[in-house]
Write a protein that binds this DNA or RNA. Sequence first.
DNA 1: CTCTCAAATAAGAATAATTCTAACTTGCAC
DNA 2: GTGCAAGTTAGAATTATTCTTATTTGAGAG
Lengths: 146, 146
Amino acid sequence: MQNQIEQKCRDAGLKLTGQRRTIAKVLTEATDHPSANELFKRCTEIDPRISLSTLYRTLRVLEEARIIQSHDFGEGYARFEVAKEKPHDHLIDLVSGDVHEFNHPDLERLKQFIAKEFGYDVVRHRVELYAIPIKSSQSKRRRVRS
Amino acid sequence: MQNQIEQKCRDAGLKLTGQRRTIAKVLTEATDHPSANELFKRCTEIDPRISLSTLYRTLRVLEEARIIQSHDFGEGYARFEVAKEKPHDHLIDLVSGDVHEFNHPDLERLKQFIAKEFGYDVVRHRVELYAIPIKSSQSKRRRVRS
DNA sequence: CTCTCAAATAAGAATAATTCTAACTTGCAC
DNA sequence: GTGCAAGTTAGAATTATTCTTATTTGAGAG
């Protein structure tokens, strides 16, 4: 019952405290992209002795160790997820706040191509699509797909 | 001489105060993507009687009126630019902080395509390339696409 | 198992960008 | 010129996050 994050902490030489185990558990079990506040709620539900500072520090440490990844979707706070092998981009549902992940090879090629035209190498990028669900029952939209 | 922003303020039914004229002038003359702080410096150089609150409120009002556009490049503060007819994306020079604008039709097509696969319509998007200059060859610097 | 101590934690203060408050101006329609 | 809604000012408030300081703890060594 040792989760992925606990093993990675060990590998990174991080102490495994009770708080970290709890945070690791919550992060591992999250299927969404929770904010620090949301994570704090879930953590204190398991163990109320966790302080917000500890959560924030742990999140920072875990991100520095590349174990988790934080995102800023322009909501005024960060959202977190366990780092995946493949980097990916996000589609944010403007109605529900749900986040979908995607990775399109054309996009990767395109960004390198564009950067090269300016004389740059892309170090990292941010691609976020803010979108609303297509209502299938509704008549076809007038705007034709491009 | 009446600049673009002043006319647009008039059209939007906004009062043209001395402070707004100064802010409009500074924004119009900026060729970079200045932060609120940087804008404040430039404004107070022209007229020291402008307060930071006024600047922030004016920036908000101007953005709501679609006269300017703010961006969050993950630096902890916003950057502003006069709204252009065509929306565009940004390449941020990680060394100098310079911002280059681009617009690639393939990217527009691709984002719609990806969203449609998830059953969504893209309302807006954010594409930012964080990059470093290619050192070896001077290649294609200063190439501007609109 | 105990000792040790660097690393981690708790609680709350500090920070920084931005927004709000409340009392005072001012642009501009009449 | 007047009236008043919109704008301004200075500073307080807000909010996510980081820092400080005293205290606790994980885990390696003995």
